[in-house]
Design a binder for these strands. Sequence first.
DNA 1: CTGAAAGCGCTAACAC
DNA 2: GTGTTAGCGCTTTCAG
Lengths: 349, 349
Amino acid sequence: MRDATLRDVALLAGVSARTVSNVVNGYARVSERTREKVERALLELNYRPNVLARNLARGRSGQIAVVVPYLDTPYFAELLQAIIPRAREHGYNVLIDQTDGDAAHERELISRGARAFLFDGMIFSPLGLAQEDLVEIDPDLPLVVLGERVSNGVFDHVGIDDVEASRAATAHLIGLGRRRIAAIGDQPYPTGEAAQLRTRGYRQAHADAGLPVDESLIIPTPRFNRADGSGAMRALLGREDPPDAVFCYSDLVALGALHTALELGRRVPEDVALIGYDDIEEGRYSNPTISTISPDKVAIAATAVERLLRRIGDDEPMPGIEVRAEHRLIPRESTVGKPFAARPHLGGT
Amino acid sequence: MRDATLRDVALLAGVSARTVSNVVNGYARVSERTREKVERALLELNYRPNVLARNLARGRSGQIAVVVPYLDTPYFAELLQAIIPRAREHGYNVLIDQTDGDAAHERELISRGARAFLFDGMIFSPLGLAQEDLVEIDPDLPLVVLGERVSNGVFDHVGIDDVEASRAATAHLIGLGRRRIAAIGDQPYPTGEAAQLRTRGYRQAHADAGLPVDESLIIPTPRFNRADGSGAMRALLGREDPPDAVFCYSDLVALGALHTALELGRRVPEDVALIGYDDIEEGRYSNPTISTISPDKVAIAATAVERLLRRIGDDEPMPGIEVRAEHRLIPRESTVGKPFAARPHLGGT
DNA sequence: CTGAAAGCGCTAACAC
DNA sequence: GTGTTAGCGCTTTCAG
């Protein structure tokens, strides 16, 4: 049997479609008697509004898109986990897409998706697209960008202060007495802005401490994953003058680096200390556990959704703003060692 | 400026909406001349079909829902990663939802979502819902269930042979000479069918080897995550007669157990060997790496999507079938030790 | 407070 | 081949 439509309900209740609609959506005041009649009919026919029709009539899709480069990157998975319930609270469904960092795909989504009424707005974590590409987006598309870009005034941007966080991470290593500190994850090309901010913080920490930067210790990697960290670490440890500490641009990189360091017989942190970035759960269970920069993901998710819905709600395009979420440094075993184990102190001068 | 509609294009091209629709959708044959005219108009107006309107007219939503308990569980993330491109190939968008294992939420999705035209079909990995709950679903909802349930004939089911995989995992440990083998992850209640299948395989391996099962070594856990594995391992190692091997019902459980074993000063695999389940990437980078049961996720994803689309396409409800995906056991360091390290052999009698 | 009716933009009989 | 047109099911303006 076909599902009941609004009209069926109206017929049964002996009222017009308009009134049923009012009841269903809680719009205008409906008299007590009418409401009861309608509600009985609603129940009897087990009515469910057809979302498609509703949205067509309303001129919106009721969905927001969340676009990330990779779904199986724990950081994004954890972020999504926080975004979905927030969106749902506000009656929005979440359409997820992964771009694999493909610039064409990212551009396509930005230019077509919203216009096709696939979604009303988008939370976007760009990878393939450089800052300059983002200026060409449709200013009518409600957009919130996550991560390390800076708003250009047309979309909102939410992220942490990457330069400062990276500076703090590097300073933490310096404070522990490390002097040859490598950095894994630089991306010295236009789409690598995220990485470059971290490199900047790394340099700044060195400058603050009056330490020179050995450029050969800054290792570029195509992505921020385990394999990248592993490969870079292997190269670093193969040198005659290996580093005594490494600032990794993601926890995944740190985990890959850790794996390889141990495999090659190095002790962590005694021989080489490691700090990551993102604070994914995995880093709390590795052996040793990974020190990290912890961005406030819940706040990022909540802010992103809140800003996006506000943009969707406003007809006038509103100027893009910049939101800084909190972050903190969490020292764990990969820099400060096991809590109760007796081991030589490496810190101090 | 408002976006161009089909009608605008028709007007400009001097044809009817019908013809434009034909061109856009590649339906009936259109004469070369007309097609050209239309395509020029299409381009000139930069036309994009309104998906909402199209779907309303077609009576479908063009979306499939993928419902998993937790998005930040690597196994699900990896599965989703494989599902999304498959669905997209066929022109479907993927709506993702996480239920947190909440039975009410799961039931709600099953009963309402499709009827509201939110999605045309659903790939579902149930957690809160017991097998018996699934029989009550709308037989008209195209549904593919993932994981450890068995099809009841109304929906399709795709998964691996859990009993056999679990038997093999346990037999692997027995073959290495282990005799006191614990199992972490049992769930002796109606919604724990997944876990129970694994326990069954565990028992079977013991029976095959003529070994008794120490019931106190079967540790139930509420979920399959790191914290569960860690807690269970702590309890096991606190006993006077600790196990010399553990079969963990997920890699996450194994990773948590590993963390705690090392923390308590045990050597893995010398003192206690560990095997997991799922083959998530994390297990290939842990120290030591985790032996595991590897389900063919790509095949599972492809099969699930393919079956679902077939069900969506068929008007007649088709009988649910059972699809078994491949799996294999991957021995890694957590059972067989480091490849080149000199260490005492524990195998043999 | 409620009814009638005009769309939302597209698809797909049904004609010609 | 192509045009006409009646919906898809809901929202919402305009009357009353």
